[in-house]
Amino acid sequence: MAKTVMYAQFVGIPLTIILSLIALFKKEEKKMLATFGLILVTVLIIVIGFFLYLGTHFAP
């Protein structure tokens, strides 16, 4: 289960960044949704990085 979540994040975060950037530069798309997507991806990257830091530095 943990590996499935890891692979989903590995594929999902770059995909979300790419789709949000495409939506941000399209003229007819709503800018607020694209901006919200980019903010959400940034928060997810920070959280995952924090957990990776905890996992590598505080492992028994």
Rank of each mutant, 00 (worst) to 15 (best):
L44A: 11
L15P: 08
L19A: 13
V43Y: 07
A23R: 05
I22P: 03
G12T: 06
K27P: 06
F10W: 03
M6C: 02
I46A: 15
Q9I: 14
K27F: 00
F50G: 08
T56C: 02
G12E: 01
Y53P: 08
Y53W: 11
I17S: 13
E29S: 07
L52C: 06
I18S: 01
G55Y: 09
F25S: 04
E29F: 02
L21H: 04
F50C: 04
L40W: 13
L40V: 11
K27T: 11
Y7R: 07
A59W: 01
T56P: 06
Q9R: 10
I48W: 12
K31C: 02
T4G: 03
A34I: 01
H57Q: 14
L54T: 05
L40C: 11
T35W: 06
L44F: 01
I13N: 11
I39L: 15
K3I: 14
L21E: 00
L44Q: 04
T35P: 08
K31F: 01
T35C: 13
K30V: 04
L24R: 14
I17P: 03
G12M: 05
S20E: 03
V5K: 09
I46Q: 06
Q9A: 15
Y7C: 07
V47A: 09
L19I: 13
H57T: 13
G12W: 08
L54D: 02
L15C: 12
L54K: 10
F10I: 05
T16H: 02
L24W: 13
K3T: 14
F10V: 05
M6I: 07
E28I: 10
T42K: 09
F25A: 00
E29P: 07
Q9K: 07
S20K: 07
H57Y: 15
K30Y: 08
I18T: 10
I18V: 15
S20N: 13
L24K: 13
L15V: 14
I13S: 12
L15R: 00
M1D: 11
A8G: 05
P14Q: 04
I18C: 04
I48H: 15
G49F: 11
E29K: 05
F58L: 12
H57A: 09
A59H: 03
K31A: 03
F58D: 05
A59Y: 02
L33G: 01
T16W: 00
